[in-house]
Amino acid sequence: MFEIFALLATVLNAQVKIVDSNGLNFKTLTASFYEPRIGLMKYFDRNSLKVDIGNSLDVFQFRLGSYSCTIGVDFFAYTLVNNHGFLILRVEAIDGFFGGNVSFKSDNFSTRLRVLHRSSHLVDEYDEISATPFPFTMEFFDLIFAFERQNIRFYSGLSFIFRHKPANIDEFCIQFGFEFFKEISSHSLAFESPLFFIFSSDFKFFSSRGLNLTSGVKFGRWNSRGIFLYLVYYNGFDIYGQYFNLKREFGGFGLSFDF
């Protein structure tokens, strides 16, 4: 029995390896809120912050013809935090996601399939007149296809919610956008890393309808680790599940630590 297990482990080890990388096989979408991030964003129209906590990791990697293939995990959350003074923060709402992904990448083409659970909650404080906590949960998959050429990446895809509560949620979402990136310096300030300008857009319709425009500068390579300073404009339905049926329009300034 041990010999069979050892033989199987040897065969798998020859084909599949633990990923040792400083970048994802499928780079997360810059202008989509439903992506893992580490950082925060200050709303311009209210005394609040959006705080992102989480990560996406490629765990296993193997080759399939000309494609680099990975299997990974996604654990992340974003919160609506109200500011009541210096470092006096109260969490109003939180949306949490966890699940896994499979991605494929060649020279110019990449695709990613995710299967995720999402739930949303009201936490420390909220307006009890206009908001009442209710069960908000879903399981869904999303499939994104991306094509990269020179300094731009186009993408499109769809998502399907196969279990959800409440019942009055649109189950399908179609998504498309692009990301323009341009190196403006091979060295940035005191860092040895390059400096990139990035402009990106993301548009969703049916469920999660909204337009997001994000632009800023990144200290580090476009598709790898770095520090991203950005401005954002959003117009669509609220990104927090507890307010999913409310229309929002806002701008903000953010900082994220890309992985």
Rank of each mutant, 00 (worst) to 15 (best):
S159F: 00
T10S: 15
D58C: 03
S21P: 02
L87S: 09
S188C: 15
A146I: 01
N101T: 05
L229R: 03
N13G: 15
E125I: 07
R248N: 12
D142Y: 04
G96M: 13
F181L: 08
C173R: 03
A131D: 14
A6I: 10
A31W: 11
A190L: 15
R63A: 12
K27A: 05
S200N: 07
Y126W: 15
R114E: 12
Q242P: 07
L49P: 04
S21Y: 06
L246G: 04
L80A: 03
I94E: 04
Y67I: 03
F196V: 01
G252Q: 02
V16G: 09
H164N: 11
A190Q: 10
A131F: 14
L116Y: 03
D58L: 03
G65M: 14
A146S: 09
I174G: 09
G236H: 06
K165F: 12
Y230Q: 04
F172N: 13
G241H: 02
D202L: 00
L158K: 08
I129N: 10
F60K: 04
A93L: 05
D170Q: 11
E35Q: 12
D124T: 01
A14W: 03
Y233P: 02
N25W: 05
A77T: 10
P194N: 13
G254F: 00
N151E: 13
G216M: 06
S48P: 00
D58M: 05
G23M: 07
F205V: 01
F76C: 08
S224V: 04
I4D: 09
R248I: 02
L255H: 05
F176D: 03
F228Q: 00
F196C: 02
H121M: 15
F180G: 04
F2Q: 08
Y67W: 08
F2H: 08
G23E: 11
G96R: 11
R248Y: 09
L49Q: 13
V123C: 06
H84V: 01
N223T: 00
L231D: 14
N245Y: 06
D258M: 06
I161R: 12
V59K: 09
M138I: 00
A9M: 15
S48L: 00
F228M: 00
P194L: 14
I4R: 09
R163N: 08
P36A: 13
F134V: 01
L231W: 15
T214D: 04
R37D: 10
F44M: 07
S66G: 14
E171I: 01
N82I: 03
N22S: 11
K105R: 15
S200R: 04
F203G: 05
I174V: 13
E92G: 09
N101G: 13
N25V: 11
F181D: 03
I169K: 06
F97C: 05
D107T: 14
I38K: 10
Q61D: 09
G157S: 12
G39A: 14
I144G: 02
G251T: 14
T70N: 13
Y230F: 15
F237D: 07
G252E: 02
K204G: 05
D127R: 13
T10I: 07
P166I: 03
